[in-house]
């Protein structure tokens, strides 16, 4: 009987370990690790069926830093957070414009990787623009 209980406890312990899975922040942690401490250069912007290419040209770039700050080639600085809201992955950017106004911009993350990033800029009306970045 003692051996049976031992077996039961051992099986339970093994099952408990087997049930360990991802935490609620796993996805945002992975996305953050891919996004941060890199400078992302805009290669393409796509609005509807119109595609603009900036490959080989002087282009817009943005850096997401590990301390949660962001700065871009237009001279804007601010903070950002990566969030998962209703299953949608987003970057929330709070920046101060050159004249001191504070604005928030939300980007849906279409795809993020070590070297490729695709964002969709949320707009109040009209067709959203998809931005294709490369980390060089």
């Amino acid at each position: 009987m003692k051996q049976f209980y031992t077996f039961l406890i051992a099986a339970f312990a093994l099952t408990m370990v087997a049930c360990n899975k991802e935490t609620p922040t796993t996805q945002t942690d992975v996305m953050n690790s891919m996004l941060t401490n890199k400078t992302w250069y805009l290669d393409y912007s796509v609005t509807g069926s119109a595609t603009k290419s900036y490959v080989g040209q002087s282009t817009y770039f943005v850096s997401y830093l590990k301390d949660g700050s962001v700065k871009d080639s237009d001279g804007l600085t601010g903070t950002y957070t990566v969030e998962l809201i209703n299953g949608k992955s987003q970057i929330h950017v709070q920046v101060k414009t050159l004249n001191g106004n504070s604005i928030e911009q939300i980007y849906d993350i279409i795809s993020v990787g070590d070297s490729k990033l695709v964002l969709s800029k949320q707009v109040a009306s009209g067709t959203p623009t998809q931005l294709y970045f490369t980390n060089k």
């Binding site: 031992t6 312990a13 370990v17």
Partner: peptide, 17 residues
Amino acid sequence: FTTHFLFLLLAITAFSS
């Protein structure tokens, strides 16, 4: 920590009896 603890528990229970 949970994983290590459960393995320790598993080992102790297995060997103790």
